[in-house]
């Protein structure tokens, strides 16, 4: 299949109406208001409507403070909405968390520094009572998946930032979740490492078939990785546009895609949605204006 041009704003192939449980995430009229200083409040999110289909890769993009992390934390049940409803595979967010329906990776890798790489990856398996032999086998698989087989006995402080992030991703995949939540996992990496990690993430995602909700503030990153880019704006945080950018099946996307015309069209579409057409026209094509 060749790469079809992205279709900005237009709803691409109409998703067949299916039962709630096959949708990975359904967010309905969600609002999150934080109490601020001296009785003032911060409306981090308002009127959020979002559906992530099973196996779909959706990026959340927007300037910092627009509520991307807050939305992800609500889906993960690390925080609760002040209004609205969130379903993950048809269950409440809390139930989904308790049943381990998702894997999560943060901007800071969040590894436990006193545990080796292997021990970090097996943490969720150990917490949920998997036997030692099964754990060892699963950790070996995951180490291969993220290309760190030689580093099992190393400690996080002996790894580069990119390697730490790979460990965190392996850990998030440990229990084969059908949904991955990622909050700027490559935000702290240099550009070259970042591009390599993106390609690796696409490969892993093709292998696991998981749905992904991916927070980023990089336009090229969102376009390169996603089936759909959700654009958000701050004060109050809300969704302003959704752009379909299917550049091809995850497994078929290679590095050369970054130089493809369809890729640049996707970048332009997202940029226009973020800044308005005038700003997008003024900026040179294909340059990241994060």
């Amino acid at each position: 299949m060749s790469n079809p041009a992205p279709q900005p704003t237009a709803a691409a192939p109409e998703p067949t109406q299916v039962a709630d449980a096959t949708e990975a995430v359904v967010v309905r009229e969600v609002e999150r208001i934080f109490p601020g200083a001296k009785g003032a409040t911060v409306t981090a999110l308002t009127g959020i409507e979002l559906t992530v289909h099973g196996g779909e890769f959706v990026s959340l993009i927007g300037p910092s403070g627009c509520g991307k992390s807050t939305l992800l934390r609500l889906i993960a049940d690390l925080d609760e909405p002040t209004a609205g409803d969130i379903r993950v595979f048809g269950k409440t967010a809390r139930q989904a968390r308790v049943e381990q329906a998702y894997g999560i990776a943060f901007q800071q890798a969040g590894l436990l520094p006193w545990r080796s790489v292997a021990a970090n990856i097996e943490l969720p398996l150990q917490l949920h009572g998997m036997g030692a032999a099964d754990r060892r086998a699963r950790v070996a698989e995951l180490l291969d998946l993220v290309g760190l087989a030689d580093f099992a006995k190393h400690y996080p402080d002996q790894l580069s930032g990119g390697m730490q992030q790979r460990v965190a991703i392996a850990r998030s995949l440990a229990e084969r979740p059908r949904l991955l939540l990622m909050d700027e996992p490559f935000g702290a990496l240099d550009e070259m490492t970042r591009e390599r990690m993106q390609t690796e993430l696409l490969r892993i995602r093709a292998e696991t078939g998981a749905a992904v909700v991916f927070v980023t503030h990089s336009i090229p990153e969102a376009v390169y990785l996603s089936d759909r880019v959700v654009v958000m704006s701050p004060r109050p945080g809300r969704i302003t546009a959704e752009i379909d950018v299917r550049l091809g099946e995850a497994g078929e996307r290679g590095e050369d895609l970054r130089e493809d015309a369809a890729f640049f069209e996707g970048v332009t579409a997202v940029r226009e949605a973020l800044h308005g057409p005038a700003a997008a026209a003024a900026a040179p094509r294909g340059v990241d204006v994060r």
Partner: peptide, 19 residues
């Protein structure tokens, strides 16, 4: 981030203390 992680694993209080 470690607290969030343990919550995402639905870890018990005693697990959080130990781990």
């Amino acid at each position: 981030v470690h607290r969030d992680l343990m919550r995402s694993y639905a870890a018990t209080r005693s697990q959080e203390t130990r781990f």
